[in-house]
């Protein structure tokens, strides 16, 4: 069998407890006004929870390089999609709208 280390029971329990604490934390944080940081905190905690599940429950910690590459590729491609779509929408306002056309004064060509 491929060397699949058996993770100690204790590790699973610790990770599980940490996950539950994080759920409480993120829910609690929603009741505090942190301004724009509410979103940052919520997504940051979600990221930590995801890493815990990935590394321990999904055994990514003990997986081979190829599995790591697959996981990272998925994340990278998702960011690519979101990132380039946002690149479009966020930069649309960078140019002021041209003056509206008026039929009385046709545009002159140099």
């Amino acid at each position: 069998m491929a060397a699949q280390p058996i993770v100690p029971f204790r590790t699973y329990v610790l990770v599980f407890v940490a996950l539950l604490v994080l759920v409480a934390l993120t829910t609690g944080a929603a009741f505090i006004d942190l301004g724009p940081f509410n979103t940052v905190v919520a997504l940051g905690i979600a990221f930590i929870k995801m890493m815990l599940v990935l590394l321990f429950f999904m055994h990514l910690l003990h997986s081979n390089k190829l599995t790591h590459v697959t996981a990272v590729a998925a994340a990278f491609w998702l960011l690519l999609l979101i990132g380039l779509v946002f690149a479009d929408y966020t930069s649309r306002g960078w140019i002021p709208d041209p003056a509206p056309w008026s039929s009385s004064a046709p545009p002159t060509h140099p």
């Binding site: 380039l84 479009d88 649309r92």
Partner: peptide, 17 residues
């Protein structure tokens, strides 16, 4: 995967993108 916007040059996509 990095070039798809070339199908959208005339659609109102931002000029910088």
């Amino acid at each position: 995967f990095l070039v798809w916007g070339h199908h959208m040059f005339v659609t109102g996509q931002s000029i910088y993108t």
